[in-house]
Amino acid sequence: MPSQAANYYRPQTPEMAVELLANLQGAAVIGGATLALGKLGGGRPSHLIDLCDAGLDRIGWRGHHLSIGATTTMRDLRRHPELSAPGLAAIMAMAGHFEPLPVAAQATLGGNLCTGVGSLVAPLLLYEAHAVLLGPDGERHAPIAPLRLHPGEIILSVELEPGSPMARSGCQSLRRTPVGPALVTLAALVDGDQLRLAVSGIEAPARRLRDLEGRWDRRSVAQWAESIAHVVRPIDDARGSADYRRAMVGVLAERLLKELLPTELREVH
């Protein structure tokens, strides 16, 4: 295996990857390679540093954080037992968007975060997720929205707090074309009477709607949906107008909250 020849490299550790990145002009780190080799991203990098053997595809606990390795594929996310809890259903829903496309077996969490419009960002934000990065100056934690890598850094993992075992979450999105970018993605988590909300697609970067969050008060689902539609700052472009995106985040909110809220809260009014 020519792991150290010419312009394809397959480092065995993240540290080796960072060292290669520091020493190679025009190199790109690849997880699934869907961005670097795909023709959407512009020019082809001169060197590929393939992380597939760097041990970054693990999912496990690190303290009270659940750590998901950067090269975990969408398909592995869907299949992993640690992620089957109802509290993490929001992540599952978006990872599932890639099924049944074969790219699901190749596209990685790290790549999804790097695109800037990744469908996993909104659901991950529900769990106070941060990225763990490794660079020439060592390891650091960074927000995922927007994710800003310093030169020479790679993503090791994303760490999140899954919340209580009683939590329920979900995520819905709406697209102009079946596999095009989402006009609106809304993720929500209900933990007891606490509610968390995050949006992407409709805004860039994705964000938590912290102003609205907190205790589920005595408003109806429809009123909540209206509030959500009120606070977002929708993008307006040829794919979808701001009006439509705003109306749709309301529609998705109503659907999602009806699905997530326990009956006693849903039927307050």
């Binding site: 080799l37 959407l40 393939d50 597939c52 074969p102 077996a105 190749q106």
Partner: peptide
């Protein structure tokens, strides 16, 4: 060339991949 149409599908060790976005040396 962007991993969406499947025309370049092939099996690597029995797993289906999009050849256009799969690194040759992998």
């Amino acid at each position: 060339g962007e991993g969406i149409c499947g025309a370049c599908s092939c099996l690597v060790a029995g797993e289906r991949v999009h050849g256009c976005i799969y690194p040759a040396f992998r």
